[in-house]
Amino acid sequence: MRYTHLYALLLMVVFCASCGEKQAKGKVIMIDPEAKGIISSHGPKVITRNIIQDRKGNIWMAAFDGVFKYDGKYFTNITSKVSSARFFSIAEDRKGNLWFGSVGSGVFYYDGKSFRNFTTRDGLLNNGSSSIYEDSKGNIWFGVLGGVSRYDGRHFRNYILDGNAMYEDMTGDALPKKQLFGVNTIIEDNKGGFWLGTNGLFRYDGKSFTAFTRNGKPFKNVRSIIEDKKGNIWIGCADGLWRYNGGTFTNFKQGFVGHIIEDKKGNIWISSGRNSYQGWTLSRYDGNSLYNKKPTVATIVNKPMTFGILEDDKGDIWFGDFDGVHRYDGKTITDFGSKAHQK
């Protein structure tokens, strides 16, 4: 008899656990196949936060006036018929689908034909998403205000930011609307661990989160994390530019560092400023001198602010700022915010 009761209890536990997982269907937004968005010769004209290149060679931009696709000749505002949201983050998954993160309208999935909008009603932790990342298993991670959400194709699994700690949320409830900090960047390293940048630096091994400090102090406002070809972790934050070799943190620059990329030649590109609001530059650290006491640094351009950086398949560098998107070919900078494409 006791085995019958035990079996019934086990079924109840499994049933209750499955009830706690809300299947995320998202709101489907159908669009007229003929309405492909607004096509023009210029790109976004306002804040452009992130830039990627898809597998077909198109350049995609997440901007405050929409998500734009550049095919090498024309720009198309893909979301002009879908949402008036301000877009912050963008990613392409392994199947070629696009994901867009907005400031307060949740995340959008685009398969080339229709859109699907996921919000807190579907299990997303918060409707403001500043980063998107696909891991080696195909899960999509969304850095949001208050923590991070992981989507496996059916359900969201949420992790809460709580001061100098992070933990998995088991309630399934969305966070209150007002959150001071969010997860700005997420990467998976070559050992399968996840690095998350927020008002602090964390690594998640699949079971628990470890908070990292430098000189006993937590990292402040981490905006970007990358892993270079040698397996070093680079961190851009309010405390400057740092490299972590698995045991030691090395500081390369003081001041605020926003975005970081490593190009095909091993050079490190950063956007940085005196603080988070002024005196910004786009700079390149020569890859051959990164282990010297004084690496060679070239300033490419000075701007009031610079945001996302991309190296395209031709080796050109794209970057966003307050008034759109720009491309640097090694000699000149093209401004795509105007029809004239002024250089």
Rank of each mutant, 00 (worst) to 15 (best):
T48I: 01
K264E: 13
D169A: 11
H42S: 13
N245Y: 02
M12Y: 06
E262Y: 00
V183E: 05
A62G: 10
K343F: 02
E311D: 05
T299P: 06
G147P: 15
R121G: 09
I300H: 14
D329F: 07
S136W: 06
G182P: 15
R243D: 00
K177A: 13
F212W: 06
D122L: 00
K191P: 06
G37P: 12
V103W: 14
T213C: 07
N221C: 00
Y109E: 12
S105Y: 05
G72D: 09
G128V: 01
G72L: 03
D286L: 02
M61W: 00
L290D: 12
I226R: 09
I309C: 11
K303I: 05
T306P: 06
T48R: 08
K264T: 15
I300K: 04
G330Y: 12
K191I: 01
H155C: 01
F87S: 05
L282V: 15
R94C: 02
K207M: 05
K45L: 01
I309Q: 12
V183C: 09
N190E: 10
K45Y: 01
L196V: 04
Y159S: 11
C237T: 13
G43S: 12
T198Q: 03
L310I: 01
D316G: 02
A238H: 13
N58D: 15
K229D: 11
R150F: 02
W99D: 04
G246C: 09
I300E: 05
T299R: 14
N245S: 13
F64T: 11
G279R: 08
I225S: 08
N221R: 11
I52C: 03
Y328W: 12
L290H: 09
T198F: 04
Y285N: 07
K303T: 12
G258V: 01
T250A: 09
T334S: 09
K217E: 14
V82D: 08
M166V: 02
F209R: 07
E311T: 06
D263F: 00
G101C: 06
G279K: 10
G96H: 06
G255W: 04
T119D: 07
T198Y: 07
S114T: 13
V82Y: 05
G279F: 10
K230M: 02
G138T: 10
A174C: 09
A91Y: 11
F68C: 11
I132L: 12
